[in-house]
Simulated scan of single mutants.
Amino acid sequence: MASTKSVIIVGGSFAAIAALKTLVATKEVKLDITLISPNDKAFFNVAVPRLLVENEVTIEKTVFPLDESLDKLTKGTLHKATHVKSSVKHVEFNGKVVTIADGSKLSYDNLILASGARSVSPIWKLDSVENVDFTLESIRQTSDRIQKARSIAIIGGGTTGVETAGELGHEFKGRKKIVLYTGSSGPLSIPLPGHVSSVTDKLKQLGVEIVNNQLVKKQGESTIVLEDGTTRDFDLILEAQKLIPNTEYLPNEVLDKRRYVITDDYFRLRDFHDVICLGDILALGQQSLVDLVYNQNPTFSKAIAYEVFGDTKVKLTPYVKPSRPTILVPIGRNGGVGVVYGFSIPNFVVWFSKSRDFMIPKASGYCT
């Protein structure tokens, strides 16, 4: 057997765990794996819209200690996996060295970049520097503010904004003023343009007011500023409109204008094939769990086999962004809208798959 290879994974959530699972599956190469993340737990952030109205019992079901996951995934294998609780400050690709927050330098044979993306508001995703407790406490504080608020504005007409509006509408219909600012022609107009009317109807049935065709911004803690300069005040404003890739530790030459990582079609850095990317940081990707599981994983697995396991006979599989979307969006507790490869699915399928429990019972499968 060849000597042990050193592999570093940057990240600690869905993509990092998926990468680890792929790595430890081999029996041909012994790996010494180091996972670097400021968080000591993986977090099933898919469930956040439900946690905002139901967190005291549910929130602990969405976090999973990384050390336990690493022990579980490497048990009975050739491999060793260690979690370093830190953030990455710099990567030297030529020297194959990663520098972490305290100045320590870690060498690698292969580097996996799976550091994900964060949101403008700390409630939706794990932070790149703060640990998971910061995110969970932010959710609890926001949940408490939701309970006390009489008026709530949600900025963002994508899946997160629509799901959150649906949850709040279902929970507080008629008792709170809930306004969704889509920033486009309608809710879900970008991922599901053919379903805007249906989504609008479902939200209105839950008492949600919808404001379209207005790019708005938050001013202070309680004011929305519209394009014409007019303002509206709310007790609470939830920003659900933007992702920020966690790539500050990477040099500009490997990033696009949005700060996502530029790779070849096989997720390798173009000039450094020993560096492979996965998840939300990919410029090629769709920044979704569905894309990671069903579209990215096949390409990533082949790249790992070729670059890490040294199987030069493997045929690399290029990533192809799906032309037809697969997306399920709960709107309240009784269903929502969804498509699978572009084909609409019935309301009860959305309810059964996601709306009834936001997939929380399946969280461990993605995070451990």
Score class of each variant (00 low, 15 high):
residue 1 M to D: 13
residue 8 I to N: 04
residue 13 S to D: 15
residue 19 A to Y: 10
residue 21 K to H: 08
residue 21 K to L: 05
residue 24 V to L: 12
residue 32 D to H: 11
residue 33 I to R: 06
residue 33 I to H: 07
residue 36 I to T: 05
residue 36 I to F: 05
residue 46 V to D: 03
residue 46 V to F: 14
residue 52 L to V: 02
residue 54 E to I: 00
residue 59 I to T: 08
residue 60 E to Y: 13
residue 61 K to D: 15
residue 63 V to C: 11
residue 64 F to L: 11
residue 67 D to G: 01
residue 68 E to P: 00
residue 85 K to L: 12
residue 86 S to H: 04
residue 87 S to C: 10
residue 88 V to K: 04
residue 90 H to A: 11
residue 94 N to C: 00
residue 97 V to P: 00
residue 99 T to C: 03
residue 99 T to M: 08
residue 101 A to I: 07
residue 102 D to E: 13
residue 102 D to M: 09
residue 105 K to R: 15
residue 109 D to S: 13
residue 111 L to C: 04
residue 112 I to K: 06
residue 120 V to K: 11
residue 124 W to K: 05
residue 132 V to P: 00
residue 136 L to V: 14
residue 136 L to I: 14
residue 136 L to W: 06
residue 141 Q to G: 05
residue 142 T to P: 00
residue 143 S to I: 05
residue 144 D to W: 06
residue 150 R to Y: 12
residue 154 I to D: 01
residue 157 G to M: 03
residue 159 T to C: 08
residue 160 T to A: 14
residue 161 G to N: 02
residue 163 E to Q: 13
residue 166 G to I: 06
residue 166 G to K: 06
residue 169 G to D: 04
residue 169 G to N: 04
residue 169 G to Q: 02
residue 171 E to L: 06
residue 176 K to R: 10
residue 178 I to H: 01
residue 182 T to N: 03
residue 183 G to V: 03
residue 183 G to M: 05
residue 183 G to S: 06
residue 184 S to P: 01
residue 188 L to Y: 01
residue 188 L to I: 01
residue 189 S to V: 02
residue 193 P to C: 06
residue 197 S to D: 12
residue 197 S to R: 08
residue 207 G to M: 07
residue 208 V to L: 05
residue 209 E to T: 13
residue 212 N to I: 07
residue 212 N to D: 13
residue 214 Q to M: 05
residue 215 L to P: 00
residue 216 V to N: 05
residue 217 K to A: 10
residue 222 S to F: 07
residue 225 V to W: 04
residue 226 L to Q: 10
residue 230 T to V: 06
residue 230 T to P: 00
residue 233 D to A: 13
residue 237 I to T: 01
residue 237 I to R: 01
residue 244 I to C: 03
residue 248 E to V: 03
residue 251 P to K: 10
residue 252 N to A: 15
residue 255 L to T: 09
residue 258 R to N: 14
residue 259 R to V: 01
residue 263 T to Q: 10
residue 266 Y to L: 07
residue 267 F to I: 04
residue 274 D to W: 03
residue 281 I to Y: 04
residue 281 I to V: 15
residue 282 L to G: 06
residue 285 G to S: 10
residue 286 Q to A: 15
residue 287 Q to N: 14
residue 288 S to F: 08
residue 296 Q to V: 07
residue 300 F to P: 03
residue 304 I to V: 15
residue 305 A to S: 15
residue 309 F to A: 02
residue 317 T to P: 00
residue 318 P to W: 11
residue 319 Y to W: 09
residue 325 P to D: 14
residue 336 G to C: 02
residue 338 G to A: 10
residue 342 G to N: 11
residue 342 G to H: 12
residue 342 G to W: 11
residue 345 I to R: 03
residue 345 I to E: 06
residue 347 N to H: 11
residue 348 F to M: 11
residue 363 A to N: 09
residue 364 S to A: 15
